[in-house]
């Protein structure tokens, strides 16, 4: 059966989780390991760490962070943010991450996707695509949505699949941070264009938004950050809503 995944995303800088997570009753809300454990108990199906520091110093602390997290948290971990080479991907995957996500570097050097897929398997390669609507088409943007590439997002999605990506993380930069819901047309176009799993990202503000992403967008994964971090929505609520609409989810009760 097809089962929808609910995926919290944590922004990490120099081994600390940034973007306030003050709501949680945690000793240290910036501690990635503690937060990851919390989300595992909440019923998260996977976790994504986005390295927004991505400095040289940040890289080495990411290794320690991953080792600590992978020895305490037993759900799949994806790491993205500033990964530019096969060597960096190797370090990340050997440190405990299950998947590594490429964004700008894949656009700059599409061969990288194939290199990592050949070495570590397609299942370890996520390509993150940041998309903005330009006129009546979807365009790939890089560098946090600041730089246009002129590349059509749907053609790019097909290309990265052919090159060996195992999953797509599609973020609507138009919706990101707006809480207006996913860009359903974008998600739908992506799932129709490709045959690998698609994670929808950007814009979630309500439980209904999640349901829409899975039901109308046909996304395999639903990513959110702030609504979870601020405790506005709990994963169990999302899964209950998905289940009530006939979608399969891993129940939260069984994993807490």
């Amino acid at each position: 059966m097809d089962v929808v995944r609910v995926i919290p995303c944590l922004d990490v800088k120099d081994s600390r989780v940034v973007k306030g997570v003050g709501f949680l009753d945690l000793k240290d809300a910036g501690d990635p390991v503690e937060l990851a454990s919390y989300y595992e108990k909440e019923g998260a199906d996977e976790l994504i760490f986005l390295d927004i520091g991505a400095s040289v110093e940040g890289r080495s602390t990411m290794v320690d962070l991953l080792r600590d997290t992978a020895s305490a948290v037993f759900i799949p971990l994806t790491v993205g943010g500033g990964v530019t080479s096969l060597d960096q991907a190797a370090v990340i995957l050997h440190s405990g991450a299950d998947k590594v996500s490429f964004n700008s570097a894949a656009v700059r050097n599409p061969k990288l996707i194939g290199e990592v897929a050949k070495t570590f398997g397609s299942q370890s390669v996520v390509v993150a695509i940041d998309v903005k609507r330009v006129g009546n088409r979807f365009e790939v943007f890089t560098h946090g949505g600041t730089q246009p590439t002129g590349v059509d997002a749907l053609s790019w999605a097909q290309e990265v699949e052919e090159r060996g990506a195992g999953e797509l993380l599609v973020t609507s930069m138009d919706r990101d941070g707006t809480k207006e819901g996913f860009d359903i047309e974008l998600v739908k176009a992506m799932t129709e264009t490709t045959s690998i799993p698609v994670i929808a990202s950007g814009g979630v503000g309500s439980i209904e938004d999640f349901v829409e992403g899975a039901l109308e967008g046909s996304a395999q994964g639903l990513l959110a950050a702030s609504v979870f971090h601020y405790g506005e929505i709990r994963i169990k609520q999302v899964k209950d809503a998905l289940f009530s609409k006939g979608l399969n989810v891993r129940p939260v009760e069984l994993c807490s």
Partner: peptide, 11 residues
Amino acid sequence: ARRLPQMQWNT
């Protein structure tokens, strides 16, 4: 399968 890889939880 609708999508490959199967990358998900299942029973």
